[in-house]
Simulated assay, not measured.
Amino acid sequence: MATVTLISVTTLGAVFLPQLPPERLRAVVRAADESGLEELWLWEDCFRESGIATAAAALAWSDRLRVGVGLLPVPLRNVAIAAMEIATLTRLFPERVHIAVGHGVQDWMHQVGARVESPVTLLREYIAALQALLAGERVSTEGRYVQLRDVALDWPPPAAPPILAGAIGPKSMRLVGEASDGAVLTAGNSPSAVVEAKKILDAGSAAAGRKSVPVVVYLHAATGPDAEERMEAERANWQYDTIADRSVVGDAATVARAVRALADAGADTVVLQPTPDDPDPEGFVRFVARDVRPLV
């Protein structure tokens, strides 16, 4: 019998999708915490649910679960307010909060009058100011989009938390490698796409004289009843030409193989993203923690 070598990723998590009503979050958090899930990730999608409010509730309802927000759209949030909220969460729940920032969906930013001419410039200025504020610095800056005048947090965290950033295009991805503390890649990236993204991220890190940043990758995943049909609906919703290598459907062993493929491609963390119509969100997080994790 052939020997199978398992390649472990640092972290395996799951997403609570904002298509679910906020009142469903508590049961999913409890299921995640009790089953031993490492991380539960939340989204701040317009115009569904707040990333910070849901993160605070999830952290309060759990004992050991780490909670990620991926991501906060920076055009919507003044950087000083974001720093205050992140610092508060970090002090209340040390080492249990992961925050990612990014451009946000440009159509949504246009809807609320927050779209900017240069999203890359805004993200660069924003990350630098946010990191400085969370490090306890007093910040004055007059950027193109970020202006702070003698601003410092009264309650900075004892240690500045990492600030991750999401990116899709090559310019943004290079910036994430240069300036952030980690990258978040959306679901729909095949292992080969992750390899290419990692090259761009690493080039950005090298240009800034930094080590490579860790990479979080979302993975479309479905198991149980009607999984194939539900994933086909996801393919149509995201307008993928094909779902092959962009998702995984099946039992724990099948899902674990897809996770390991992303780990081989350079993912440090893989976060399984259920379909919005998954019939059992609580069961999904238990499946990830109890069935998939031991195989990864």
Results as ranks from 00 to 15, higher is better:
192 S>F: 07
57 A>D: 02
222 A>V: 03
264 D>I: 02
155 W>I: 03
55 A>V: 13
263 A>K: 14
274 P>K: 12
185 L>P: 02
99 I>D: 04
3 T>K: 03
145 Y>Q: 02
104 G>H: 03
73 P>H: 07
271 V>D: 00
226 D>W: 02
294 P>F: 06
69 V>N: 02
3 T>N: 04
237 N>I: 01
260 R>T: 14
147 Q>Y: 03
34 E>L: 10
74 V>N: 01
17 L>Y: 04
156 P>E: 07
189 N>M: 12
250 G>P: 05
164 L>P: 00
141 T>D: 00
42 L>T: 10
31 A>P: 05
91 R>C: 12
13 G>E: 03
238 W>G: 00
55 A>D: 07
175 L>G: 09
187 A>D: 10
242 T>V: 11
163 I>M: 02
218 Y>G: 07
199 K>A: 15
112 V>L: 09
121 T>S: 11
169 G>L: 06
241 D>T: 11
9 V>S: 06
50 S>L: 03
118 S>N: 13
16 F>A: 06
88 T>D: 12
172 S>H: 08
151 V>M: 05
17 L>A: 02
251 D>H: 06
111 Q>H: 08
11 T>N: 07
160 A>K: 12
10 T>N: 14
144 R>H: 04
278 D>H: 15
157 P>G: 10
276 P>N: 10
74 V>Y: 01
294 P>D: 06
58 A>T: 06
116 V>G: 04
193 A>F: 05
64 R>T: 11
73 P>Q: 08
12 L>S: 00
295 L>M: 11
127 I>F: 01
26 R>H: 11
54 T>P: 00
4 V>C: 00
138 R>K: 14
114 A>F: 06
62 S>Q: 00
280 D>G: 07
134 L>H: 04
127 I>R: 04
44 E>Q: 13
33 D>L: 08
11 T>W: 00
52 I>T: 06
200 I>V: 15
